[in-house]
Write a protein that binds this DNA or RNA. Structure first.
Lengths: 137, 137
DNA sequence: TTAGTATATAAAGTTAACTTTAGGTCAAAT
DNA sequence: ATTTGACCTAAAGTTAACTTTATATACTAA
């Protein structure tokens, strides 16, 4: 089973120009072409795009991903580099998860703060009976 | 206790130009100035900067944050908006946490994949005895 | 045969969030 | 008295990741 660029775009919820951009940047070097130059995506190309989509939210750049793809093409001599890359990325994601947890705690605090303020009709409920809290509590 | 821009930069691990940029963008409107124009940061300004730093990793933009700061200055009439903002942001962060979990699962899979490959000396350990797995397993 | 639809490329434009550069003020130390 | 170091502004530059625009080709249905 193969897919056109439009089909892949729909399937993965990416725009067609984004897919062409990824191709230009060397992220999907195994996509084939018809005689007149139209891209033909295989399942394995889609799998790779899914990996890319999964790696992106962790802040891995297009360039980093390209490097990884190149290493894949280079075979067993790059196994250590690829392993190291993912170990590093694991650390990055762990840090992000912590940060996101802190953000969530702040947001929960804010939600509670504004819920109470709304019920009272004024933010002052948080100011009265308290000393030393800041404007941005 | 007050702080110079350089002290705040060190304390919060932000660059001086970034702090000036935030000021220009209206993110820290309560920072005062000396007669000759030098910024003077109070504890409450630093608290606000910490809130900003906490909100940023969740993808909240400078513009969104500015809107929030403006609402804060507008008083009780914006309580609902502020509450809604944080409810929305909560949903955003929840989604991000899920995505990050997926990313982490993929990374763990890759780490294991490359660990095994390294021990065997070749990626082929994953190809032999198996049918239908992709190049990017 | 012509209108519509999907594809292609190259190159320019966009946006966010900074950073860098250039030029200037001011107080303290040498 | 001048040099050093920290501060200031305005404006231009940077980078990533796309998006948009302009132009062209190719198949497909009426």
């Amino acid at each position: 089973m193969t897919y056109s660029i439009g089909e892949v775009a729909k399937k993965l919820n990416l725009s067609i120009p984004t897919l062409r951009y990824y191709d230009r940047e060397g992220l999907i070097p195994f996509v084939e072409r018809t005689d007149n130059g139209t891209r033909v995506f295989k399942e394995s190309d889609i799998d790779l795009l899914k990996v890319i989509q999964c790696l992106k939210p962790s802040g891995m750049t297009i360039k980093d991903i390209k490097t990884f793809i190149e290493w894949c093409s280079d075979g067993d001599s790059t196994l250590q580099q690829r392993y190291d890359l993912f170990l590093e990325q694991k650390a990055v994601v762990e840090k992000q998860m912590e940060e996101l947890k802190n953000t969530m705690d702040l947001i929960d605090h804010k939600c509670h703060y504004y819920k109470v303020a709304l019920e009272a009709g004024t933010e002052n409920v948080h100011k009265n009976n308290k000393i030393g809290n800041t404007v941005f509590d």
